[in-house]
Each structure stands twice: as structure tokens, then as C-alpha cells.
Design a protein around this nucleic acid. Structure first.
Lengths: 159, 159
DNA sequence: GATCGAAGTCACAGTGGTGTAGTTCCGTTG
DNA sequence: CAACGGAACTACACCACTGTGACTTCGATC
């Protein structure tokens, strides 16, 4: 099964399409260190970046936060935390951002608890939605590639 | 009792101090229409703006959202809604921002419901905290003025 | 009507990009 | 194997937004 998943990931252009940002924006984010293309960073003009499925998940979460009106600077702060926790069962977790603190929260009750102590604003990002959006976008754009999906998602790269 | 509350409100400088922003920032927000000093807009160099207690509440909410990393542009969108609902018992309400939509939500259960349908990010601002912070800041900075507080808050202006 | 505090104005800085024009790598062709 | 062509990274200039600091100008008050 594992050999069904090409290991060469996604190109910048394709990643941008899937995530729903411009190439220039993805380039900017990558150059400024917001994301690191797991399967290969750029080494100069003509080299190619390679993003994996997890990168896509991260990028989609970033875009969702930006669309919600959160400043990129703030997303950056939050993001080191988020990227460590995308491994957990993403569909069961809500990301809660309280000021500069972030936590992964599993149940609604926990969120209510946080609300009670709540200083400032809670930003709640249901990660299940992020994954859903991402997967359907991949299938949408490249249905023919979507033949052997691993548990982590479609994750089928271009070939 | 009503006569105990000076009707001339708060000057720009004082408002900035209480809300916890620079004078220049408050000036910028006011010039660009984010807030309108209820008790008197500027009519040219040398004129004086006058903010009332409700303005302070609005401004404090704005600052809280900004501190939470939300873009001013987004705060502007949300704000027309918020300013209409600051009348309700502020200490009982949470402001929930979902995308560009805003709602006032009373109980935690309602928030959980919103989370379930949740597209994108929920930004939750407990307004009780906003009022508390504001009031204690007023008393902090100007204890001698705090003699006749109306139900809406300290609301005692300079004189 | 002088003084002084606050509003106005202008220029500039940092963030978060975007458009365009190279530049380089890499696979293909001759 | 060398030249070619295209994809995609890079560099540079430029934009809007969100301020800030410095200086000017005006209105209220004494």
C-alpha cells in the first residue's frame, strides 16, 4: 500500500492551487519561514520546493485563520504549536487560541471551561473542517489521482 | 442622580489613557471612522472630541480584538454589529465572530452549537471581561472621580 | 488677545503582500 | 554531449494598511 503513495509530494504551483492561495503568497510564506516544504526546500533559482500532505494541512489551517481576519504575525506565533499537534487525530480536535497561547481541545465542555477563565478573545478553529475542505479540494482539482488514499487523507501527489 | 454624571464625557487624551492606546492611535481610529465620539466630533483644528462611556466600552472591545491578533479591517466589519448590541446586559453576553458574521451569544451551550456547524474560525470575546477591565482602569487612573457610578459603569467624566 | 492643549497634516516605517523580469535547473532533443 | 525550452525560484520595485513622530494650526479659556 505504501508504494501507492508517491513520495515526491506536491509542487509549489499545485500546492497553491489546492490550498487556495496565490503562488506569490505561498512563496512569501515559505521564504519567510511560516512553512517548510518537508520534501525539499529551494536551493536557488531553478530548484523545486516539495510539499507533503501535512504541509497542505498546515497551509490550509493558516489560510483559514487568515480568512477569519487574524494577522499573519499572530498565525506565525501560534503555528509552532499547531504543527506539533497535527499528528493527533485531526478530526477530533479543536484548536483554541487564547492570546498568544494555543491548546488543542477535544470536547466542547473544555471550551466552556476556557471561556469562563477567558481573558481576551478565544479563537476556535475546528480542525475537522480544515481537513475536510482540503481533501475535497484535492479530489476536486485532481480526481484522477485520487485512487489510493492513505488514512491521513488523499495525499496522492502529482506524478 | 443623573446630574451626578457629567454629560461632557471624556477628552481624547483621557480616553486614550483609559482604553490603553496611544493618542495617535485613537486619533487614527476616529479619523478613519472606526468610532464616533458621541458627545462631539471634531470640527477643525482646535476643536475637541468628546467620548462617552459607551465609546469607551466600544474602544476597549476593539483593543481586545486587536490584542488577540485580529486585523483592524476585520474589527471594522464586525463593529457595526457590536455597537448595536452593547446596550444589552454586557456582562451576560459573549460576542462570537464567525467569519464576517457576528452574534451575541448568552450561554455556553449556544457556543457549542455554533462550533458544531462551525465553518472557519470562531472568535469569542467575553464582554464581561471587557467591561471589568474598563471599569477598573477608570478607577485606577482617576479614583477621586469615582463617586457616583451609574448602573452602566463608573462613567464619571472629567470636570 | 495671549496662551495652551488638542486636532490636523505630513512624512516615514513595518507588515504583507503583488507584478514583472530575470536566472537557474533539468529533462529532452538533435 | 551540447543546446534548448519551460517550470519555478529569486530579486526588485511597488502597493495598501496601520500606525507613529514632529510640526502646524486653531479654538477655548483666562
Amino acid at each position: 500500500m505504501a508504494t501507492d503513495i508517491p513520495a515526491d509530494g506536491y509542487s509549489s504551483k499545485r500546492t497553491a492551487e489546492i490550498v487556495g492561495v496565490t503562488y506569490r503568497q505561498l512563496d512569501y510564506w515559505t521564504r519567510t519561514g511560516l512553512v517548510k516544504p518537508t520534501l525539499g526546500a529551494a536551493t536557488g533559482s531553478g530548484s523545486r520546493r516539495r510539499y507533503d500532505y501535512r504541509n497542505l494541512l498546515e497551509l490550509r489551517a493558516v489560510k483559514t485563520l487568515l480568512d477569519a481576519g487574524i494577522r499573519l504575525e499572530h498565525v506565525r506565533e501560534v503555528f509552532s504549536y499547531l504543527s506539533e499537534h497535527l499528528d493527533e487525530d485531526v478530526t477530533q480536535v479543536n484548536l483554541v487560541i487564547s492570546g498568544t497561547r494555543s491548546v488543542a481541545v477535544r470536547s466542547g465542555d473544555e471550551i466552556i471551561d476556557l471561556l469562563r477563565q477567558g481573558q481576551g478573545v478565544l479563537n476556535i478553529l475546528p480542525l475537522a473542517g480544515v481537513k475536510e475542505d482540503l481533501d475535497s479540494k484535492i479530489i476536486d482539482l485532481y480526481p484522477e489521482d485520487h485512487l489510493a488514499a492513505p488514512e491521513t487523507g488523499p495525499a496522492v501527489a502529482e506524478g
